[in-house]
Amino acid sequence: MFEWEGDLPRPSVRTIEDLRPVLADPSCEKSGPAYYMYRDLAKSDEDLTWLHKHNLRYDITVIPPRTLCGEWVKTKGHYHPKNPAGIGYPEVYEVLEGQGHYLLQSRRFDDIVMVSADKGDLVIIPPEYGHVTINPSQNATLVMANIVSCAFESEYGPYEKYHGGAYYEMSNGLLRKNSRYPELPQVRNIGATCVADKYTFCKGPLYSHIGNEDALSFLNFPENYLPVFSVLLKNLVQPR
């Protein structure tokens, strides 16, 4: 599965049935678990106390390889609400094993970004972007960690309303537009959005930031980091 110091709690399991409302083919007859979520982890009581004191949570998600009637397996997709300052809560991910594709979309659907990340890469989800995580592999399990604020509940409603993200990533390598959305821009393809030599919180491993308030304060107070967020998704490769 993946290396972890100590016992793991029982994971929350997202099933194919849970994902059916957001699949490219909702009539897909496949069934069973899609991915596993280990919530609120820490390697020591001291680390867990620090995380809770700072209203943060460290999670690990495991997405085994599979296709769902022509579509790569993925997470359900969600947005984050605004914090008390009126700025959407961000999130940070680290790929621990495998490769991840993070399909980000702005709330107004005027920017769609596919972030490709490999083992060791960190990816920041900026405020006001929804995101779906995809495992684009036939044989490798995607294992990823994240740290996120505990001050909110994720918003799945918009993805359910439109039956998925703006695009579906199919196992034949193509991106299929979701026809339920209004007119969409082309997808911008970029590499991992966190560059360690520019931003302190981009230096991995992600777990090493636990205990460092300066490195993780952006998760609860994004209003203090707006200039950083404004450039995170500018690493443009080319439209797809």
Rank of each mutant, 00 (worst) to 15 (best):
residue 124 I to Y: 02
residue 102 Y to Q: 06
residue 150 C to M: 11
residue 124 I to E: 02
residue 54 H to P: 00
residue 57 R to D: 09
residue 118 D to N: 14
residue 95 V to M: 08
residue 97 E to P: 08
residue 48 L to F: 10
residue 126 P to K: 04
residue 168 Y to M: 07
residue 101 H to T: 10
residue 89 Y to N: 00
residue 150 C to L: 11
residue 149 S to P: 05
residue 159 Y to V: 06
residue 117 A to F: 07
residue 106 S to W: 03
residue 39 R to I: 10
residue 85 A to Q: 14
residue 54 H to N: 11
residue 36 Y to L: 13
residue 148 V to W: 00
residue 28 C to F: 12
residue 160 E to L: 10
residue 150 C to K: 13
residue 73 V to S: 15
residue 51 L to W: 03
residue 25 D to N: 13
residue 55 N to E: 05
residue 24 A to G: 11
residue 145 A to F: 08
residue 29 E to K: 13
residue 96 L to C: 02
residue 122 L to Q: 06
residue 101 H to D: 11
residue 45 D to L: 14
residue 147 I to C: 10
residue 27 S to T: 13
residue 42 A to E: 06
residue 78 H to T: 01
residue 147 I to V: 15
residue 123 V to M: 07
residue 141 T to M: 10
residue 141 T to K: 10
residue 36 Y to C: 12
residue 56 L to V: 01
residue 123 V to P: 09
residue 132 V to S: 08
residue 155 E to R: 14
residue 111 D to F: 14
residue 120 G to W: 01
residue 163 H to I: 02
residue 44 S to E: 01
residue 150 C to V: 05
residue 58 Y to W: 09
residue 83 N to L: 10
residue 98 G to P: 12
residue 149 S to G: 03
residue 34 A to D: 10
residue 53 K to T: 09
residue 124 I to R: 04
residue 165 G to C: 00
residue 50 W to C: 00
residue 100 G to R: 02
residue 151 A to D: 15
residue 37 M to R: 15
residue 78 H to E: 05
residue 52 H to Q: 12
residue 80 H to T: 11
residue 109 F to Y: 13
residue 112 I to M: 02
residue 149 S to R: 04
residue 83 N to G: 12
residue 36 Y to A: 08
residue 126 P to D: 03
residue 100 G to W: 01
residue 164 G to R: 08
residue 46 E to L: 15
residue 144 M to V: 13
residue 42 A to T: 04
residue 60 I to F: 04
residue 166 A to L: 00
residue 43 K to C: 03
residue 37 M to S: 11
residue 92 V to W: 02
residue 32 G to Q: 11
residue 162 Y to K: 03
residue 28 C to Q: 07
residue 146 N to S: 14
residue 34 A to L: 13
residue 125 I to F: 04
residue 96 L to M: 10
residue 31 S to N: 11
residue 162 Y to F: 06
residue 56 L to D: 01
residue 53 K to A: 09
residue 136 P to I: 12
residue 168 Y to R: 07
residue 163 H to Q: 13
residue 151 A to C: 13
residue 22 V to N: 13
residue 156 Y to M: 12
residue 54 H to Y: 01
residue 110 D to Y: 04
residue 93 Y to I: 04
residue 120 G to N: 02
residue 77 G to P: 09
residue 92 V to H: 00
residue 60 I to K: 07
residue 119 K to A: 12
residue 61 T to L: 04
residue 80 H to E: 09
residue 80 H to Q: 11
residue 69 C to W: 11
residue 141 T to E: 12
residue 23 L to R: 09
residue 147 I to T: 15
residue 117 A to V: 06
residue 28 C to W: 05
residue 52 H to P: 04
residue 168 Y to N: 05
residue 79 Y to R: 15
residue 136 P to W: 12
residue 125 I to V: 14
residue 31 S to L: 06
residue 70 G to N: 08
residue 65 P to K: 05
residue 27 S to M: 12
residue 110 D to N: 12
residue 115 V to A: 09
residue 64 P to C: 05
